[in-house]
Amino acid sequence: MPIITESKSAAVVIDDAKCIAEKGCTVCVEVCPLDILAIDEGRKKAYMKYDECWYCMPCEADCPTGAVKVNIPYLLR
């Protein structure tokens, strides 16, 4: 039985213009309790990789440039 991938809207949104991942910053990735964020190796920007957000907000609170916004996942909104 094949595995499919399903696309969903991301709860955690990164403002690429503010994100400084290309300078080596990984703060949001490091603090996430569910480990759902990652750095896109091509664009050198943080993004939400897994649809497993607990909307707890350390990523937003600890981002040094205010690039991260946590939205309530659509199913709960």
Binding site: P33, L34, E52, C53, W54, C56, P73, L75, L76
Partner: peptide, 12 residues
């Protein structure tokens, strides 16, 4: 809600 990570506790 059916959302697996929408728990009361930290979902970890």
């Amino acid at each position: 809600s059916g959302y697996m990570f929408g728990t009361y506790e930290n979902a970890a």
